[in-house]
Design a protein around this nucleic acid. Structure first.
Lengths: 420, 420
DNA sequence: AGTACTTGATTCGGTTACCGAACATAGTCT
DNA sequence: AGACTATGTTCGGTAACCGAATCAAGTACT
């Protein structure tokens, strides 16, 4: 078990408490653990652990919950992390919808609200909608007195946390380069933090979903656009300017269709949602017996048809898997993750997508350990990005427990909202 | 200026000294700095800095070298890092040659020895050759009494430092999976550490060459094979199993020539050294007036001809740049480094290679900040890998100065060799 | 030149965050 | 019952810092 990183001398009594935070993280990770086990796995003395734990207990994040099994001596007092001590809001801004999840401190979704909205063109309405859905989540999902820890926001565009006020004007021109969500955080008196949607999907799958235990993973989000998020050594990888993961515009076929980006044959022109629907339409002319024939259909219907074994839908999915496999192979060769998680529109197809995807990817990768990387479908499905947004806040609080302390003072008898 | 990471409590008097190491690193980085400036930029008190510096001075790694300019008060005593306090051996094992560099603590090459050798098929002879060249370097390049800090080794195959005894049997079958160089380290009584050659090329360019200041960079090594090394956040990135950077087998043309790896149209089948020579041969039949016509030529002659403006050679280089550009574009989109450094066989062509490379790469990348990544040629040329091997040792010592202390006790009056 | 002020370096006492030893507690094993 | 073992707490000790005071050596103003 890795040693706890010990703290440095503090001059400021309100400063960070590295050791207390490290112990809190350990308890969080183990869920239930005794003081003696903390000392052992953290490389600390029992006296220090006692001291630190007694500092943590009054926060309510950890409780003593009875005794464990004896290992030949006195039975240990079990400490348990209280997953419901706080709640977190995770907001997903899509290109054309908003979703809000309310989670506990273990990634569990307590409430979920989503609505279609022209996010790209209506910043003011989007801000109001986020507040509305957040209120709804807090009213439906919160038990009395549970403080709100913070709000995480997933953005459908590149985002550099180093420059939080510089939003990409390419994807969201109407937003004029700034998010303007400070008001939402102020409304509840909690911190607000943001990141790119694919990054947060990757984070969620790493913490709670298909990617548990994989410290180096790539998450590929298939939708209208195609992006990837990368976890490297357990942390979100953003690249030099925060725009890593623009995997959708990898050129597959130099002679392919022109893309909005100005290039030809980008992955997104082949397997972006519009391309999939168009391809299905093409195939329908040869297969008038398909269940999709003669009616309008969207990606949900296409997915359903594929699962039902419809020849056209299956063909579309297999072609998409082939194209995606080429890019995944390049990704494996270059970055050598231990896992690739596929999320978004087609992830629900499961093995129908994964089998041809794995075959293409593995036939195009060289080194055996690269080929050994697991390729899986998202476990969290459409909620992964919003859950990841909430996880961003949880991660920050576990790294600096002052966020927990700030939230406690914020607990209200009402739904957690604070009238200022 | 970033704060120095303060030390944890030590129970072991021979344990690591994080603060002393951090101060030493700061002095190394600034080269000349006063105690007061260390306190300021490290976020420490002057009293602590005095104490720590007085602990460092007796090691001889840092000396007081006179007074600096007054800033309105007493003139500061300047401390200077002694770049020549130790020497380091950097060994490059290629597929068919061995090179050894002796460097100081600032990446300066004090001696350089290289010889052709069938490394792949002759492990025992290679080990003896490494020892021979190392001896030669120490005899030529070392001033009396300079201790040897350690030996770094660059390997022409994937290497996972977590499993140092499992060598890829694909690239080096005759080595039977283990390096067997412990004897060389023992011979001089110093530690020996290894890594992949492209990783070490990246490290060298990041520390001393074209990549200085770029905390996220990719280094692409063009040779018989093609590999890349990646620096992420200032550290070598190895991926989950230590084989990241297998960029040579990215598929460019699914209908292309078969590659030794079993795929078709890999980058290496288009711009690996043999492919370049073959392509030049093809073009010669149409251009009998080329300076290359009617004689045998290797990559050095091809490079020379291109620099002289020979049409065939220039055409080969430009085609190669185009193929490489496609892969570089994918790399930029995926990993968003701030710089790409091209090293190896063609790097000497300079702008002749870089201009078409930049054009292809930039025309195939989307986000403006990705396109802003600089694409440069290696500054360290053929020595970069061996220098990087030495840098691996330097880096380790700067992270744990006990290595320096161990080396001091090892100083000999002779060439640094120790008869055991 | 003399004086006030500034910056640099050292000394020394104080504080913090840890450890270790001793002890109380509560279990198992024979 | 007695020996032994593991858990948790108390308490004194100490390494690794800081801060204030002091000495040192420069600049700036009068």
């Amino acid at each position: 078990m890795e040693r706890v990183r010990k703290g440095e001398r503090r001059s400021d009594p309100d400063g960070p408490r590295p050791l207390a935070d490290a112990v809190l993280r350990l308890i969080w990770r183990e869920r239930r653990i005794s003081r003696a086990s903390i000392a052992e796995s953290g490389g600390l003395s029992r006296s220090t652990v006692s001291e630190v734990v007694n500092e943590i207990l009054p926060t309510g994040l950890v409780n003593e919950v009875g005794l464990g099994e004896s290992r030949g001596g006195r039975r240990p007092v079990l400490l348990e992390f209280q997953d419901d001590a706080c709640v977190i809001l995770g907001v997903e801004m899509g290109a054309a919808h908003v979703a809000v999840a309310l989670t506990d401190l273990r990634g569990g979704v307590l409430a979920w609200e989503t609505r279609e909205h022209p996010v790209r063109t209506d910043p003011e309405g989007t801000r109001a909608l986020i507040a509305e859905l957040a209120d709804a989540c807090l009213e439906n999902g919160v038990q009395e007195g549970r403080p709100l820890l913070g709000i995480g926001v997933a953005l459908p565009c590149p985002f550099d946390p180093a420059l939080p006020d510089e939003l990409s004007t390419i994807v969201l021109p109407a937003w004029e380069g700034h998010l303007g969500l400070e008001g939402v955080g102020d409304r509840y008196g909690v911190p607000l933090m943001a990141d790119n949607d694919a990054n947060l999907g990757a984070l969620a799958e790493h913490w709670w979903g298909a990617g548990r235990g994989a410290d180096d993973l790539a998450y590929i989000k298939l939708a209208t656009g195609i992006g990837s998020g990368h976890i490297i050594d357990g942390e979100i990888y953003r690249g030099a300017t925060g725009v890593a993961g623009e995997v959708g515009h990898t050129a597959i076929d130099p002679q392919g269709k022109p893309c909005i980006c100005g290039l030809k044959g980008c992955l997104v022109t082949l397997i972006g949602t519009p391309a999939l629907l168009e391809r299905a339409g093409e195939l329908l002319s040869e297969h008038p017996d398909s269940v999709l024939a003669g009616r309008g259909f969207g990606i949900a219907e296409l997915e359903e048809a594929a699962l039902a074994g419809d020849a056209v839908a299956v063909e579309v999915a297999e072609e998409a898997a082939g194209h995606l496999g080429i890019v995944v192979a390049g990704l494996l060769n270059l970055m050598n993750p231990s896992m690739v998680v596929v999320g978004g529109d087609l992830a629900g197809l499961g093995e129908l997508l994964l089998v041809p995807l794995r075959e293409t990817a593995r036939s195009r990768t060289l080194v055996s350990s690269v080929r050994a990387a697991e390729i899986r479908a998202s476990e969290l499905g459409p909620k992964s990005v919003a859950i990841g947004a909430a996880t961003l806040v949880l991660k920050a609080a576990l790294n600096d427990s002052r966020l927990f302390r700030a939230a406690e003072t914020n607990a209200t008898g009402s739904v957690g909202r604070r009238e200022k």
